[in-house]
Protein backbone atom coordinates (compact mmCIF):
# COMPACT_ATOMS: atom_id res chain seq x y z
CA UNK A 1 0.00 0.00 0.00
CA UNK A 2 1.31 3.47 -0.91
CA UNK A 3 1.50 5.89 2.01
CA UNK A 4 2.93 9.37 2.48
CA UNK A 5 5.09 10.42 5.39
CA UNK A 6 4.32 14.14 4.98
CA UNK A 7 1.12 14.38 2.90
CA UNK A 8 0.82 18.15 3.46
CA UNK A 9 3.49 18.61 0.80
CA UNK A 10 0.94 17.34 -1.72
CA UNK A 11 -0.72 20.76 -1.36
CA UNK A 12 2.13 22.02 -3.54
CA UNK A 13 0.16 20.54 -6.44
CA UNK A 14 -2.07 23.63 -6.06
CA UNK A 15 0.87 25.67 -7.37
CA UNK A 16 0.91 23.81 -10.66
CA UNK A 17 -2.23 25.30 -12.36
CA UNK A 18 -1.15 28.96 -11.77
CA UNK A 19 2.38 27.95 -12.80
CA UNK A 20 1.11 26.44 -16.05
CA UNK A 21 -1.03 29.52 -16.73
CA UNK A 22 1.85 31.89 -16.00
CA UNK A 23 4.33 30.00 -18.12
CA UNK A 24 2.17 29.11 -21.11
CA UNK A 25 -1.09 31.06 -21.25
CA UNK A 26 -0.61 34.48 -19.64
CA UNK A 27 -0.55 37.03 -22.48
CA UNK A 28 1.69 39.39 -20.54
CA UNK A 29 4.32 36.83 -19.64
CA UNK A 30 7.97 37.77 -19.87
CA UNK A 31 9.05 34.92 -22.10
CA UNK A 32 6.74 35.95 -24.92
CA UNK A 33 7.69 37.94 -28.00
CA UNK A 34 4.71 38.82 -30.19
CA UNK A 35 5.02 39.23 -33.95
CA UNK A 36 2.14 40.16 -36.28
CA UNK A 37 1.87 37.36 -38.85
CA UNK A 38 -1.59 38.39 -40.15
CA UNK A 39 -2.80 41.25 -42.26
CA UNK A 40 -5.64 43.21 -40.60
CA UNK A 41 -8.87 41.19 -40.66
CA UNK A 42 -7.36 38.57 -42.95
CA UNK A 43 -6.65 34.89 -42.30
CA UNK A 44 -3.59 34.49 -40.11
CA UNK A 45 -0.39 32.88 -41.32
CA UNK A 46 0.48 29.58 -39.60
CA UNK A 47 4.20 28.94 -39.45
CA UNK A 48 5.08 25.43 -40.77
CA UNK A 49 6.74 24.32 -37.55
CA UNK A 50 4.71 21.23 -36.67
CA UNK A 51 7.67 19.12 -35.51
CA UNK A 52 9.06 21.91 -33.36
CA UNK A 53 5.63 22.46 -31.81
CA UNK A 54 5.46 18.76 -30.92
CA UNK A 55 8.95 18.90 -29.38
CA UNK A 56 7.94 22.00 -27.46
CA UNK A 57 4.83 20.27 -26.21
CA UNK A 58 6.85 17.21 -25.12
CA UNK A 59 9.28 19.50 -23.37
CA UNK A 60 6.44 21.16 -21.42
CA UNK A 61 5.02 17.77 -20.45
CA UNK A 62 8.49 16.72 -19.23
CA UNK A 63 8.79 19.86 -17.14
CA UNK A 64 5.45 19.65 -15.38
CA UNK A 65 5.63 15.88 -14.90
CA UNK A 66 9.08 16.38 -13.38
CA UNK A 67 7.68 18.99 -11.01
CA UNK A 68 4.87 16.61 -10.03
CA UNK A 69 7.42 13.85 -9.34
CA UNK A 70 9.38 16.18 -7.05
CA UNK A 71 6.24 17.15 -5.14
CA UNK A 72 5.41 13.47 -4.62
CA UNK A 73 9.00 12.87 -3.45
CA UNK A 74 8.63 15.74 -0.96
CA UNK A 75 5.53 14.08 0.48
CA UNK A 76 7.71 11.04 1.40
CA UNK A 77 6.07 8.17 -0.45
CA UNK A 78 6.54 4.69 0.96
CA UNK A 79 5.25 1.20 0.42
CA UNK A 80 3.95 -0.30 3.65
CA UNK A 81 3.78 -3.98 4.43
CA UNK A 82 2.54 -5.81 7.48
CA UNK A 83 4.64 -8.48 9.15
CA UNK A 84 3.32 -10.94 11.70
CA UNK A 85 5.75 -11.07 14.62
CA UNK A 86 5.37 -14.17 16.77
CA UNK A 87 5.90 -13.41 20.45
CA UNK A 88 5.47 -17.00 21.63
CA UNK A 89 7.73 -20.02 21.07
CA UNK A 90 6.53 -22.62 18.59
CA UNK A 91 6.99 -26.38 18.56
CA UNK A 92 10.34 -27.80 17.46
CA UNK A 93 9.87 -30.52 14.85
CA UNK A 94 12.21 -32.94 13.12
CA UNK A 95 11.11 -34.76 10.02
CA UNK A 96 12.96 -38.06 9.64
CA UNK A 97 12.66 -39.31 6.08
CA UNK A 98 13.59 -42.74 4.79
CA UNK A 99 15.85 -42.56 1.70
CA UNK A 100 16.31 -46.33 1.32
CA UNK A 101 15.90 -47.94 -2.16
CA UNK A 102 12.50 -49.40 -1.26
CA UNK A 103 11.09 -45.86 -1.16
CA UNK A 104 11.27 -45.98 -4.96
CA UNK A 105 8.37 -48.48 -5.03
CA UNK A 106 5.65 -47.23 -7.34
CA UNK A 107 2.57 -48.09 -5.32
CA UNK A 108 1.63 -44.44 -4.69
CA UNK A 109 0.60 -43.80 -8.29
CA UNK A 110 1.49 -41.78 -10.24
CA UNK A 111 4.56 -41.16 -8.10
CA UNK A 112 6.76 -43.37 -5.97
CA UNK A 113 6.66 -43.47 -2.18
CA UNK A 114 9.59 -41.08 -1.79
CA UNK A 115 8.20 -38.39 -4.08
CA UNK A 116 4.76 -38.69 -2.48
CA UNK A 117 6.26 -38.42 0.99
CA UNK A 118 8.37 -35.45 -0.06
CA UNK A 119 5.37 -33.67 -1.58
CA UNK A 120 3.29 -34.25 1.56
CA UNK A 121 6.10 -33.00 3.80
CA UNK A 122 6.48 -29.94 1.59
CA UNK A 123 2.78 -29.12 2.00
CA UNK A 124 3.00 -29.73 5.74
CA UNK A 125 5.94 -27.32 6.09
CA UNK A 126 4.17 -24.64 4.07
CA UNK A 127 1.17 -24.93 6.39
CA UNK A 128 3.17 -24.34 9.59
CA UNK A 129 4.06 -21.00 11.15
CA UNK A 130 6.54 -20.14 13.88
CA UNK A 131 7.55 -23.80 14.40
CA UNK A 132 11.25 -24.50 13.86
CA UNK A 133 11.41 -27.55 11.60
CA UNK A 134 14.47 -29.69 10.84
CA UNK A 135 15.15 -32.55 8.47
CA UNK A 136 17.00 -35.84 8.88
CA UNK A 137 17.53 -38.35 6.10
CA UNK A 138 18.45 -41.95 6.60
CA UNK A 139 19.38 -44.97 4.55
CA UNK A 140 22.25 -47.20 5.58
CA UNK A 141 23.28 -44.33 7.81
CA UNK A 142 21.52 -41.21 9.04
CA UNK A 143 22.48 -37.56 8.60
CA UNK A 144 21.12 -34.21 9.60
CA UNK A 145 20.11 -32.28 6.49
CA UNK A 146 18.69 -29.16 8.16
CA UNK A 147 18.72 -28.24 11.86
CA UNK A 148 15.42 -27.02 13.36
CA UNK A 149 14.90 -23.62 11.77
CA UNK A 150 12.26 -21.07 10.92
CA UNK A 151 13.95 -20.48 7.59
CA UNK A 152 11.41 -22.54 5.64
CA UNK A 153 12.77 -21.47 2.25
CA UNK A 154 16.13 -23.01 3.11
CA UNK A 155 14.42 -26.08 4.53
CA UNK A 156 12.31 -26.59 1.39
CA UNK A 157 15.31 -26.15 -0.88
CA UNK A 158 17.23 -28.78 1.10
CA UNK A 159 14.20 -31.09 1.03
CA UNK A 160 14.22 -30.86 -2.75
CA UNK A 161 17.88 -31.93 -2.80
CA UNK A 162 17.21 -35.26 -1.07
CA UNK A 163 17.31 -38.37 -3.21
CA UNK A 164 17.01 -42.09 -2.76
CA UNK A 165 20.16 -44.02 -1.78
CA UNK A 166 22.09 -40.83 -1.01
CA UNK A 167 22.85 -42.34 2.38
CA UNK A 168 23.40 -45.90 1.22
CA UNK A 169 21.42 -49.08 0.80
CA UNK A 170 19.76 -49.90 4.10
CA UNK A 171 17.21 -48.69 6.64
CA UNK A 172 18.70 -47.28 9.83
CA UNK A 173 15.47 -46.21 11.55
CA UNK A 174 17.05 -46.11 14.99
CA UNK A 175 19.90 -43.92 13.78
CA UNK A 176 17.45 -41.56 12.10
CA UNK A 177 15.50 -41.08 15.33
CA UNK A 178 18.71 -40.75 17.37
CA UNK A 179 20.12 -38.05 15.07
CA UNK A 180 16.84 -36.14 15.28
CA UNK A 181 16.85 -36.43 19.08
CA UNK A 182 20.46 -35.30 19.25
CA UNK A 183 19.68 -32.12 17.37
CA UNK A 184 16.58 -31.40 19.43
CA UNK A 185 18.54 -31.77 22.65
CA UNK A 186 19.61 -28.12 22.92
CA UNK A 187 16.20 -26.83 21.93
CA UNK A 188 14.45 -24.52 24.38
CA UNK A 189 11.02 -25.31 22.90
CA UNK A 190 8.38 -26.51 25.37
CA UNK A 191 7.18 -29.11 22.85
CA UNK A 192 9.33 -31.30 20.62
CA UNK A 193 8.11 -33.60 17.91
CA UNK A 194 9.74 -36.14 15.62
CA UNK A 195 7.84 -37.27 12.52
CA UNK A 196 9.25 -40.50 11.17
CA UNK A 197 8.41 -41.66 7.65
CA UNK A 198 9.59 -45.11 6.67
CA UNK A 199 8.56 -48.06 4.56
CA UNK A 200 11.00 -50.65 5.84
CA UNK A 201 12.41 -52.67 8.66
CA UNK A 202 15.38 -51.50 10.68
CA UNK A 203 18.36 -53.34 9.17
CA UNK A 204 21.28 -50.95 9.66
CA UNK A 205 22.86 -48.65 12.22
CA UNK A 206 24.17 -49.19 15.72
CA UNK A 207 21.16 -47.87 17.62
CA UNK A 208 17.97 -49.96 17.57
CA UNK A 209 14.69 -48.05 17.14
CA UNK A 210 13.40 -48.68 20.67
CA UNK A 211 16.63 -47.39 22.22
CA UNK A 212 16.44 -44.33 19.98
CA UNK A 213 12.81 -43.84 21.06
CA UNK A 214 13.94 -43.91 24.70
CA UNK A 215 16.52 -41.21 23.94
CA UNK A 216 13.83 -39.12 22.26
CA UNK A 217 11.51 -39.66 25.19
CA UNK A 218 14.22 -38.49 27.62
CA UNK A 219 14.53 -35.14 25.89
CA UNK A 220 10.74 -34.82 25.84
CA UNK A 221 10.18 -35.46 22.14
CA UNK A 222 7.07 -37.24 20.89
CA UNK A 223 7.44 -39.50 17.87
CA UNK A 224 4.79 -39.78 15.19
CA UNK A 225 5.79 -42.92 13.30
CA UNK A 226 4.26 -43.26 9.85
CA UNK A 227 4.60 -46.52 7.97
CA UNK A 228 4.09 -45.95 4.28
CA UNK A 229 3.57 -48.34 1.37
CA UNK A 230 1.15 -51.09 0.44
CA UNK A 231 1.36 -54.68 1.60
CA UNK A 232 1.17 -56.10 -1.92
CA UNK A 233 4.03 -56.58 -4.33
CA UNK A 234 4.96 -53.28 -6.03
CA UNK A 235 7.09 -52.39 -9.04
CA UNK A 236 10.26 -50.49 -8.25
CA UNK A 237 12.50 -48.34 -10.38
CA UNK A 238 15.44 -46.27 -9.21
CA UNK A 239 18.71 -44.80 -10.36
CA UNK A 240 21.86 -45.99 -8.60
CA UNK A 241 23.62 -42.73 -7.59
CA UNK A 242 27.04 -44.38 -7.85
CA UNK A 243 26.84 -46.11 -11.21
CA UNK A 244 24.01 -44.02 -12.69
CA UNK A 245 22.28 -47.22 -13.84
CA UNK A 246 18.52 -47.57 -13.78
CA UNK A 247 17.50 -50.51 -11.61
CA UNK A 248 14.08 -52.12 -12.06
CA UNK A 249 12.33 -54.92 -10.21
CA UNK A 250 9.51 -55.65 -7.81
CA UNK A 251 9.32 -55.19 -4.07
CA UNK A 252 7.71 -57.46 -1.53
CA UNK A 253 7.26 -56.98 2.16
CA UNK A 254 6.65 -53.79 4.07
CA UNK A 255 7.54 -52.06 7.26
CA UNK A 256 7.58 -53.47 10.77
CA UNK A 257 4.28 -52.35 12.39
CA UNK A 258 5.29 -53.54 15.82
CA UNK A 259 8.55 -51.62 15.90
CA UNK A 260 6.92 -48.41 14.70
CA UNK A 261 4.08 -48.81 17.18
CA UNK A 262 6.53 -49.40 20.03
CA UNK A 263 8.61 -46.41 19.03
CA UNK A 264 5.56 -44.16 18.97
CA UNK A 265 4.08 -45.44 22.22
CA UNK A 266 7.37 -45.24 24.10
CA UNK A 267 7.67 -41.53 23.36
CA UNK A 268 4.02 -40.62 23.87
CA UNK A 269 3.38 -40.16 20.18
CA UNK A 270 1.23 -42.11 17.75
CA UNK A 271 1.60 -44.69 15.00
CA UNK A 272 -0.05 -44.33 11.59
CA UNK A 273 -0.24 -46.50 8.53
CA UNK A 274 -0.41 -44.79 5.12
CA UNK A 275 -1.25 -47.20 2.32
CA UNK A 276 -1.80 -44.47 -0.25
CA UNK A 277 -1.13 -40.80 -0.83
CA UNK A 278 -4.60 -39.74 0.37
CA UNK A 279 -4.09 -41.43 3.72
CA UNK A 280 -0.64 -39.90 4.03
CA UNK A 281 -2.10 -36.45 3.48
CA UNK A 282 -4.80 -37.13 6.05
CA UNK A 283 -2.20 -38.27 8.59
CA UNK A 284 -0.18 -35.09 8.14
CA UNK A 285 -3.35 -33.04 8.49
CA UNK A 286 -4.08 -34.88 11.74
CA UNK A 287 -0.56 -34.20 13.05
CA UNK A 288 -0.91 -30.60 11.94
CA UNK A 289 -4.05 -30.16 14.02
CA UNK A 290 -2.72 -32.19 16.97
CA UNK A 291 0.49 -30.18 17.25
CA UNK A 292 -0.67 -26.65 17.81
CA UNK A 293 0.78 -24.20 20.27
CA UNK A 294 -0.68 -21.04 21.69
CA UNK A 295 0.33 -18.13 19.48
CA UNK A 296 0.79 -14.55 20.51
CA UNK A 297 1.20 -12.40 17.47
CA UNK A 298 1.97 -8.72 16.97
CA UNK A 299 1.47 -7.01 13.63
CA UNK A 300 4.35 -4.78 12.68
CA UNK A 301 3.97 -2.28 9.88
CA UNK A 302 7.10 -1.67 7.86
CA UNK A 303 7.48 1.15 5.37
CA UNK A 304 9.91 1.07 2.50
CA UNK A 305 10.72 4.62 1.40
CA UNK A 306 10.55 5.09 -2.36
CA UNK A 307 11.09 8.86 -2.63
CA UNK A 308 14.42 8.25 -4.33
CA UNK A 309 12.78 6.93 -7.50
CA UNK A 310 10.57 10.02 -7.74
CA UNK A 311 13.57 12.33 -7.34
CA UNK A 312 15.44 10.41 -10.06
CA UNK A 313 12.42 10.58 -12.39
CA UNK A 314 11.96 14.29 -11.66
CA UNK A 315 15.62 15.08 -12.29
CA UNK A 316 15.69 13.16 -15.58
CA UNK A 317 12.51 14.87 -16.84
CA UNK A 318 13.61 18.35 -15.82
CA UNK A 319 17.10 17.91 -17.26
CA UNK A 320 15.55 16.61 -20.51
CA UNK A 321 13.25 19.66 -20.64
CA UNK A 322 16.24 21.97 -20.04
CA UNK A 323 18.37 20.48 -22.81
CA UNK A 324 15.43 20.34 -25.28
CA UNK A 325 14.65 24.01 -24.69
CA UNK A 326 18.26 25.16 -24.81
CA UNK A 327 19.84 22.95 -27.44
CA UNK A 328 16.99 21.93 -29.77
CA UNK A 329 14.49 24.76 -29.51
CA UNK A 330 17.17 27.39 -28.74
CA UNK A 331 14.93 29.27 -26.36
CA UNK A 332 15.54 33.02 -26.46
CA UNK A 333 13.62 34.41 -23.49
Amino acid sequence: MLTFEAPLFLLLFLLLPPGIWLRHFCRGRGNLLLFPFAVWKQRSFTPPLRLLRIVLCVSHVFFWTGCAALIIALAGPGVTSRERIFLSRGIDMMIVLDESPSMAARDFQPKDRFETARETVRRFIRGRENDPIGLVGFGYEAALQVPPTLDYEFLLSELDKLHIMALGDGTAIGMGIAVAALHLRSSSAPEKVIILLTDGKNNAGEIPPDTAASIASQIGARIYAIGIGGRAEAPIELKDPKSGKILRGSLEGGFDDDVLRTVAEKSGGAYFFAGNSGTLNAIFSAIDSLETAERRVRIQVKTLAIHRWFIIAGLILLAADFFIRILILRELL
Binding site: F9, L22, L70, A73, L74, H307, L318
Partner: peptide, 24 residues
Protein backbone atom coordinates in the same frame (compact mmCIF):
# COMPACT_ATOMS: atom_id res chain seq x y z
CA UNK B 1 17.41 15.17 5.72
CA UNK B 2 16.54 14.78 2.06
CA UNK B 3 13.29 16.73 2.33
CA UNK B 4 14.96 20.00 3.35
CA UNK B 5 17.33 19.87 0.39
CA UNK B 6 14.59 18.91 -2.02
CA UNK B 7 12.19 21.61 -0.82
CA UNK B 8 14.87 24.30 -1.14
CA UNK B 9 15.66 22.93 -4.60
CA UNK B 10 11.99 23.02 -5.58
CA UNK B 11 11.71 26.66 -4.52
CA UNK B 12 14.77 27.50 -6.61
CA UNK B 13 13.23 25.70 -9.58
CA UNK B 14 10.09 27.82 -9.15
CA UNK B 15 12.32 30.90 -9.00
CA UNK B 16 14.06 29.84 -12.23
CA UNK B 17 10.66 29.60 -13.94
CA UNK B 18 9.40 32.88 -12.50
CA UNK B 19 12.51 34.81 -13.54
CA UNK B 20 11.77 33.92 -17.16
CA UNK B 21 7.99 34.02 -17.01
CA UNK B 22 7.34 37.30 -15.18
CA UNK B 23 7.65 40.38 -17.35
CA UNK B 24 10.35 42.76 -16.17
Amino acid sequence: RYRGFLFAGFLLLCAAVLVRSIKW
